[in-house]
Amino acid sequence: MNEVRLVIFTRYPEPGKAKTRLIPALGAEGAAALHRRLTKRTLAAAQESGLRIEMHVTGAPLASFAEWLGEDIRFVDQGEGDLGARLEAASSPTPVLFVGSDLPDLTAAHLIEAACHLNAGRTVIGPAEDGGYWALGLTGPAPYLFEDMPWSTDQVFGITVDRLKQHGIIPVLLPTLADCDTPEDLRLWPDLRALPIGGEAAWSGNGPRPRTG
């Protein structure tokens, strides 16, 4: 399982630049604090999985990330270009598993399941509730997945699967997860919204999130 590279994309939690779509609900400081908590949860799940972690980062020097998250992690600058260009730059060598850092429900078990499929030579994709994907695992080069993609829309998952099928690849579907990007998303995790700005989450992330309604 150690063959798989787990690549986590994140940015530095600078108020006003992190989780900007949540600022109307939480304020700049609150949105940045939530981003800090989610990134640490993601990293904890990754470390528990035993996979080889690379954090591809933006928004601050690499030394700032090491001070924040620990010096024992490999940090890589995301580089220039849109999300597609940055994903493609990070996609070699394979097998590689991409995940974001804003998934409150992510567990080590999700990552281990994906890695097992990758090590067996199977491409994987994790549908997100908003129509994108929360994970993408590749066993070989696939630049066609990153070019001319309408990122941040509800078309991303469908287009990605269609392009894989056009190249003779039927991906394994991972469980559907939701990311926390908008004020509406906060309704799914009322515990996150209720936390003080500087505090850590009371919910550990080890079980399913509390639901309302």
Rank of each mutant, 00 (worst) to 15 (best):
L174A: 11
E71D: 14
D191V: 13
I197C: 12
P24C: 07
L62T: 09
R209H: 11
P190T: 08
I125E: 00
E200G: 13
L186D: 01
G84C: 09
D72T: 13
I197R: 10
T58M: 08
P171F: 13
G198V: 04
G126L: 06
T94F: 09
A142T: 05
R122A: 12
V4E: 06
L6T: 02
S92R: 11
N119C: 14
G70E: 04
E14N: 12
D102A: 09
E71Y: 11
D82E: 11
P61I: 08
V4C: 10
R41E: 03
V172Y: 13
G207S: 14
P127I: 11
P208I: 11
D77T: 01
I169G: 04
L174P: 02
G59Y: 06
T212M: 12
A31V: 10
A45G: 06
V161G: 01
A44C: 03
F9V: 04
L192V: 15
G100D: 00
R36V: 09
E54F: 13
G168A: 04
G168C: 05
K40N: 09
L186S: 04
A128D: 15
T139H: 05
R122H: 15
G30D: 04
T94D: 01
G168N: 03
A63M: 03
V161K: 07
Y144I: 03
P104F: 08
R37C: 10
L83I: 13
L136W: 06
T153Q: 05
A178D: 03
G81R: 04
H167G: 00
P196E: 12
Q166C: 05
F146Q: 00
A128Y: 01
Q78W: 00
S92I: 02
